[in-house]
């Protein structure tokens, strides 16, 4: 498979990987609720583009379907749902005021995570394929940055976005490593995410009804001390 890939295609892959990373950083540096959702949407659109690119490079037709599905569900429906939720939230201030980790440290930490991902990818004994070696670290990075977003932020919505970023990383990983392992499972996954987002939106509603905010500082009463 790898011998079919032209040098310019490799460059394209590289550049698209870079753009995807930059889009991910977009989520890290923003404060506003709708900013995250926009950033997430852009990221997902780029992800879909990347998948199409991979489909083109590896000429596996299933991936086109997968890419279309991604675009449909993750770039259109899920942001729609979340935008709807944001609009309906009770709290007037829709900004992340003071996250656990300040934005500038977050950015640096994310860069560190990217570094870590690259090391991890180097350690892993899978790099026979050019697409894999380009995107494996990127998918790790997405994964870890998503984790980091969840860890460092106080707003529940942001945590959902973090979760979705993780999921995007996972998805990219799956596509890259297995070249679309199975359409059925892919669809099952998408459905899972969709249901997950809907459930978490319900939770968000409840949260904002009960606590008048979606700040997770309200969610610290269950503890042992």
């Amino acid at each position: 498979m790898s011998d079919l890939i032209l040098p310019t295609q490799i460059d394209l892959l590289h550049v698209s990987a870079v753009i995807l990373l930059i889009a991910t950083f977009g989520i890290v540096v923003r404060r506003g609720f709708s900013d995250w959702l926009h950033a997430y949407r852009y990221q997902t659109i780029i992800l879909a583009g990347v998948v199409t690119l991979i489909a083109f490079v590896t000429s596996i037709w299933e991936l086109y379907i997968v890419s279309a599905l991604t675009l449909g569900i993750k770039a259109i429906i899920i942001p729609k749902v979340l935008f709807y939720v944001t609009k309906k939230l009770d709290s007037p201030i829709k900004l992340e005021m003071n996250p656990y980790v300040s934005l500038r440290i977050s950015v640096i930490a994310s860069a560190l995570l990217v570094a870590m991902s690259y090391f991890m990818a180097l350690q892993l004994p899978i790099s026979s394929d050019k697409t894999i070696s380009v995107f494996l670290p990127v998918s790790f990075s997405l994964f870890f940055i998503g984790l980091f977003i969840i860890i460092s932020r106080r707003k529940a919505l942001n945590q959902i976005v973090g979760l979705l970023t993780i999921e995007n990383g996972l998805f990219l990983f799956a596509v890259v490593v297995t070249h679309g392992f199975s359409l059925i499972i892919e669809i099952g996954l998408m459905a899972d995410i969709l249901v997950g987002v809907i459930i978490s939106s319900i939770l968000l509603f409840r949260m904002s009804h009960t606590f008048d905010s979606v700040d997770i500082k309200n969610l610290e009463s269950l503890r042992d001390d």
């Binding site: 870590m116 969840i150 503890r223 042992d224 001390d225």
Partner: peptide
């Protein structure tokens, strides 16, 4: 040790990440 259950979901996820990275 008991204070691990701090009530902060951020911390909980951090545990997962730390465990993962430590094991790796």
């Amino acid at each position: 040790i008991r204070k691990i259950q701090s009530g902060k979901v951020n911390a909980y996820i951090l545990y997962i990440m730390v465990t993962l990275v430590a094991l790796l």
